[in-house]
């Protein structure tokens, strides 16, 4: 599904930083991959490289066999297949909840308004917010906004969903409702790459956990293996600090 080989990413502003160092990773269809690591470890950058919100400097990233780093690829077509959920939701504040979900369906997928709204209402039902279809994002709580954002990403029928710390901006009592939606998606067999600090979620839902530090992929394995017998010292240190 996703294959990243020797991905390197540098930032030059505000100062030169080698953010990703030869990161290679495969994600199989239907797999739930959780990426954890301290802040500044490059996990969000890696996620953003996958749909080219950040342009990796070297290496290769293919999604369903299409090279993302090829400047001539149709990046909009690829992005339509790769849903993304942001830490700060990034709902469109000038549109109602339903319009948030239907806009890209109509613009990118060329669906009729009727089809798009039908799909939108189904997804709102799924995330438990069908009754809020007509309100605007700023009238919703953070947890509700993030569930809408997930519905918005799902509306494009993506082959894979990327989650960039989806619960980090939420009040603690709202984290659960968002994680529940994500768990249901995982159960349905959605391919997911999740950058998160929610270790409970990683342990319960992940098929594989990846630990990144200093721009490098340090260790990966099944949750049991990862949380009970980590091999690297850096992993052990990180786990001892957060658990």
């Amino acid at each position: 599904m996703i294959s990243a080989k020797n991905v390197n990413k540098y930032f030059y502003i505000p100062e030169e930083l080698h953010a990703l160092k030869d990161v290679s990773l495969e994600v199989a269809a239907g797999e739930v991959l959780v990426v954890i690591g301290p802040s500044g470890s490059g996990k969000s950058t890696f996620l953003r490289c996958l749909n080219r919100l950040e342009y990796a400097n070297s290496g290769s990233i293919t999604i369903e066999g299409t090279e993302v780093l090829d400047p001539n690829c149709d990046i909009n077509e690829i992005r339509a297949e790769v849903g993304m959920v942001f830490q700060s939701f990034n709902l469109f504040p000038h549109m109602s909840v339903l319009d948030n979900i239907t806009m890209a369906q109509m613009t990118v997928r060329k669906r009729s308004k009727k089809d798009a709204e039908k799909k939108g209402m189904e997804l709102l039902e799924k995330v438990g917010l069908a009754h809020k279809y007509n309100v605007y994002p700023d009238q919703l709580s953070g947890g509700q906004q993030q569930r809408i954002a997930i519905a918005r990403a799902l509306a494009m029928d993506p082959k894979v969903l990327l989650f960039d710390e989806p619960t980090s901006a939420l009040d603690p009592e709202m984290v659960g409702e968002v994680l529940d939606v994500m768990k249901n998606l995982a159960k349905e067999g959605m391919t997911m790459v999740v950058v998160t600090h929610e270790m409970g979620f990683a342990r319960e839902v992940a098929d594989r956990v990846v630990f990144m530090d200093g721009g490098q992929l340090v260790e990966q394995g099944t949750p049991e293996h990862f949380f009970t017998k980590p091999e690297h010292d850096r992993t052990k240190l990180f786990l001892s600090q957060i658990l």
Partner: peptide, 27 residues
């Protein structure tokens, strides 16, 4: 307009001009 808005629009597969017209300019 916050950068996250155009990122969200582009991540959904909108082209640059589409994102400008539907998301950035109205705001």
């Amino acid at each position: 307009v916050h950068r996250g808005q155009s990122e969200a629009a582009r991540a959904l597969g909108l082209s640059g001009p589409q994102a400008m017209r539907k998301v950035i300019l109205p705001q």
